[in-house]
């Protein structure tokens, strides 16, 4: 941790290629050098991601508890979820994790065009995820499967008689499903907004090999969104 030995003078190596003797424009006044600023930002982001994991862990606990109490209901109710669409979304998110990692890789090399295109592909993949999710939700709503009070499965489609899923605690399964995937979906939307903002800044040439902190941080965030889905998918759709 070189940053803790902070020098008061401005003759630092100027990490990330900052020129000698002057403050790069991105360096905030309370940091000694760019390395310190980057390390601090990254550590802050990691701490924030820990809070995200804990936020979801509360819901995973609720899932585990109800599953342990009513394993047969959860098994039964989960067959209503389409594992093919869930699997498709898993692949989509994995691909987007790759492209966001590539965008960081390229800006570290100073390749602004590749940064732009990889960010754009990531955003498009995130949108694909949401569109698939939308169709999944709609297929459920159509048959009276809601979170909570409105829960009233009915109708037949693709040879599935929804009415027979009107069993005690199936409601809890779908409440947890909608809330967890809903909050996850909210994180996807936040990710899209952040990456669109990055896209604009990338277009304007704000990022360089010397300064790409927001790209790195958003990338970390996006990986967490992806990882949470990796856990959600098997728990909800497969087992």
């Amino acid at each position: 941790m070189s940053t803790t030995i902070a020098s008061t003078e401005h003759d630092t190596q100027g990490g990330h290629g900052a020129s000698h003797d002057d403050h790069p424009a991105f360096l905030q006044h309370h940091f000694v050098n760019a390395d310190q600023q980057f390390d601090a930002a990254k550590m802050g982001m990691w701490l924030f991601l820990i809070t995200e994991i804990l936020l979801f862990s509360g819901m995973f606990v609720a899932y585990t508890v109800y599953r342990a109490w009513h394993p047969e209901v959860f098994l039964e109710a989960s067959t209503l979820l389409d594992w093919k669409l869930g699997g498709l979304n898993t692949l989509v998110l994995l691909a987007s994790s790759l492209t966001v990692a590539l965008s960081i890789h390229y800006i570290q090399k100073g390749n602004q065009a590749a940064l732009f295109w990889n960010l754009l592909i990531t955003i498009l993949l995130a949108c694909v995820f949401l569109v698939v999710k939308y169709f999944e939700y709609m297929a459920k709503f159509e048959h009276g499967i809601f979170a909570g009070e409105g829960f009233d499965p009915h109708g037949v489609s693709h040879g599935v008689d929804y009415a027979k899923y009107n069993i005690p605690y199936a409601k809890q399964f779908f409440s947890i499903y909608f809330i967890m995937t809903g909050i996850h979906g909210f994180h996807v939307i936040v990710g899209i907004i952040l990456m669109t903002w990055l896209l604009v800044k990338a277009r304007l040439g704000h990022f360089s090999a010397a300064w790409y902190t927001p790209v790195e941080l958003t990338g970390l965030y996006w990986h967490i969104v992806d990882i949470i889905w990796i856990f959600l998918f098997p728990l909800m759709y497969l087992i």
Binding site: L47, I50, T51, E52, L54, L55, F56, S57, G58, M59, A62, Y66, F146, A147, G148, E149, G150, K171, Q172, S175, I176, I179, I183
Partner: peptide, 25 residues
């Protein structure tokens, strides 16, 4: 603060939905 607060956050979210939608948790 960092490790505990998210848990009250999600608890309050679930309680909120319990009251709004009657999710039965």
């Amino acid at each position: 603060q960092v490790l505990a607060t998210p848990v009250i956050g999600i608890t309050m979210v679930l309680l909120f939905f319990e009251k709004m939608l009657h999710i039965g948790i």
